[in-house]
C-alpha cells in the first residue's frame, strides 16, 4: 500500500514527462535516429547498385581522408561558409539597425525584407541562374549590353561562380538575420542609450558598448544557425553551379548529394555527412565557448 502511494507520488511529481515525451520521441525519431543511422551506414559498404552490404570499419573514412579532391572541397566549403556567415550577419545587423529606427515605410520594408527567406532554395537558384545566364537572355548580360559591355559567361569562371553562389545564399539568409537581430534590438533597454547620451557617448560608442554586447546571445544563435544552415546547403549549390566549373564550387554538402544520388554510394555519402555533423557540433561548441568567455570577461 505504502509502495503504491510512493509510486503515485513519483508519478504525480513527474507528470510533466507525459506532456513532453511525445515531443521528445518525435524529435528524436525524426532527427537523432536518422543521424545515428547515417553514422552507422558510414561503417558499411552500402551502395544502391548492390542488394547487400556489410560492415567495413573505418574504410570509408580512410577513403575520404585520402580523397585527392578533399583539400579543394574543404577550401571551397571554408570560403563559402565563412563568407556567407560574415555577410549574412553584417548585412542583417545593418538592416536591422535601420529598420529599428522610426523611419517612414518601416513596416512595409520589414514585410518585404522577409520575402527571400520564404522562397524555396531551388527557386532562388533558378532565379540567379536566369539572372547570371551566360546567353544574351541573362538579365545581367542584358544590363551589360545597355552599357555597351560584352556578355559574360559568369559560371565558367571559378571565382565569379563562387561569388554568385555566395550572393544567392546570402540573399536568401539575410532576412533571418534581420528578424533575429531586430527582435534582439527591440529588447534592449532604451534607458541605456539615454544614459549613454547624457554621458556624451557617440553613436559608434553606443553601438560598440551597448548594442553589440546586448545582442550577443542573439548573434550567437544567428551564427550557429547560419553556419549549420550554410554547411548543409545543397539545393542552391546543386541547382546554380552544380559544383563547377570543375570542382571550384563543390562544397561538402554537394559531395554528399553527388556520392549518394549520382554515384549511388550511400555509405560514402553518409561518411561525408558524418564529418559535416561533427563539424557542426565542433563549431557550435567553439562558438558557445568563445561567446560565453567574452560574456564572463567584464565581471
Amino acid at each position: 500500500m505504502a509502495q503504491r502511494s510512493t509510486f503515485a507520488a513519483t508519478l504525480s511529481r513527474h507528470q510533466y514527462l507525459f506532456f513532453i515525451m511525445p515531443a521528445v520521441v518525435l524529435v528524436l525519431g525524426l532527427t537523432a535516429y536518422p543521424a545515428l543511422y547515417g553514422v552507422l551506414v558510414s561503417f558499411t559498404n552500402l551502395n544502391f547498385g548492390y542488394a547487400t552490404s556489410k560492415f567495413v570499419g573505418f574504410d570509408n573514412y580512410v577513403r575520404l581522408a585520402t580523397w585527392p579532391a578533399l583539400p579543394q572541397v574543404l577550401f571551397n566549403t571554408a570560403v563559402f561558409v565563412t563568407s556567407v556567415v560574415a555577410l549574412q550577419l553584417s548585412i542583417g545587423l545593418l538592416a536591422a539597425l535601420l529598420l529599428n529606427r522610426a523611419v517612414f515605410g518601416r513596416g512595409l520594408v520589414r514585410s518585404i525584407a522577409i520575402l527571400p527567406w520564404v522562397i524555396p532554395g531551388i527557386i532562388i537558384a533558378l532565379m540567379f541562374q536566369q539572372f547570371f545566364s551566360g546567353s544574351r537572355l541573362g538579365i545581367m548580360n542584358t544590363v551589360f549590353s545597355v552599357f555597351g559591355l560584352e556578355s559574360r559567361t559568369w559560371f565558367s569562371n571559378p571565382t565569379e561562380s563562387m561569388l554568385v553562389l555566395i550572393l544567392a545564399v546570402v540573399w536568401r539568409g539575410v532576412p533571418l538575420s534581420i528578424i533575429l537581430q531586430l527582435g534582439g534590438l527591440q529588447t534592449i533597454n532604451k534607458e541605456l542609450y539615454e544614459a549613454a547620451s547624457i554621458d556624451g557617448a557617440s553613436r559608434w560608442q553606443m553601438l560598440r558598448f551597448i548594442t553589440i554586447p546586448s545582442l550577443r546571445p542573439i548573434l550567437l544563435i544567428n551564427v550557429i544557425m547560419a553556419t549549420s544552415g550554410t554547411l548543409n546547403h545543397v539545393d542552391i549549390p546543386l541547382a546554380l553551379t552544380g559544383g563547377g566549373p570543375g570542382r571550384s564550387t563543390e562544397v561538402l554538402a554537394l559531395s554528399i548529394y553527388k556520392q549518394g544520388f549520382e554515384v549511388l554510394d550511400a555509405s560514402y555519402a553518409s561518411t561525408i555527412a558524418t564529418v559535416i555533423l561533427l563539424l557542426n557540433l565542433l563549431l557550435t561548441i567553439v562558438y558557445l565557448r568563445v561567446l560565453r568567455a567574452r560574456d564572463e570577461l567584464p565581471s
Binding site: 551566360g134 546567353s135 537572355l137 559560371f155 565558367s156
Partner: peptide, 21 residues
C-alpha cells in the same frame, strides 16, 4: 568550342540556341 560549357548541361545551352548566339 568555348571553355564556358564546362558548367553547362543541355538545358543551359538552349538559351544560346534560342537567341542564335
Amino acid at each position: 568550342l568555348g571553355t564556358d560549357v564546362s558548367t553547362m548541361d543541355e538545358k543551359a545551352l538552349r538559351p544560346f540556341f534560342y537567341t542564335g548566339e
